[in-house]
Design a protein around this nucleic acid. Sequence first.
DNA 1: ATCTATTCCTGGCTGC
DNA 2: TGCAGCCAGGAATAGA
Length: 260
Amino acid sequence: MPELPEVETIVRALAPRLTRRHIVSAEFLSPLVVRHSEPDPEIHLTGRVIESVERRGKFVVARLDRGFLTVHLGMTGKLLLDAARTPYTRAVFGLDRGSLLFDDVRQFGSVEWSEGLPARVRKLGPEPLDISFEDLAAALRRRNAPVKALLLNQTILRGLGNIYVDESLFRARIRPSARAVSPARIRRLHTAIREVIGEAIAHRGSSISDYVDPCGEEGGFQQMHRVYGREGEACVACGGAIRRIVLAQRGTHFCPRCQR
DNA sequence: ATCTATTCCTGGCTGC
DNA sequence: TGCAGCCAGGAATAGA
């Protein structure tokens, strides 16, 4: 499940390989993955030049000589360089040198062409590594949803998903169900998010289920998860059992003793 | 405006 | 062994 650190790893691998490449062919094998696109993406993409590849939250955005190619990996999406097609290949881009495949088993991901930056990218909130404590506190103030739901909301903060929200809340010692979190706790949360995201990027993301980068490499941060996927195991801080509940329609992992 | 529930999708897992 | 049924979850959408 690619979140900010995984997408950052992917974009770092893709950018030098795709910048200044010409798209000589574009083929969509599943109508589902182009559901967000403006019409006729094959026509608009063919012949384009890729000018840059950047991450915006969990989106991969390639700026073209005309328009944008935007990819969201959803749950199981992969961007693969010079790879063989599989039964789950949903889009194929021929380049003047090599090729780019979009594989996605569950098809929660999407690939789109648009003339301008897509609306759903434009309305994203700030990057977690850029936002100041004051702005984070302001964004969470006067909200009454559980803090976990707020952190998953990409218009408040972009790039965090289920894993990194659980890990950040553990390090900040805040219960995921907490509402109206105090400024002192938001201070801890601000620090925790920066630490978790920074460490996860340094470890090239978490390989849960079948995440790999465009060269087929796995990440290593899953070894360092303190709560996610550790239900019933011992808390690294207090030794108590990690609990799993469902909150905001997501599997939610926390230590009942450390996170009050 | 804000919050919550539902929906999409399918391989893999559980349990009978 | 086989298979029905459930689970994972990002984000669009609908409903309250």
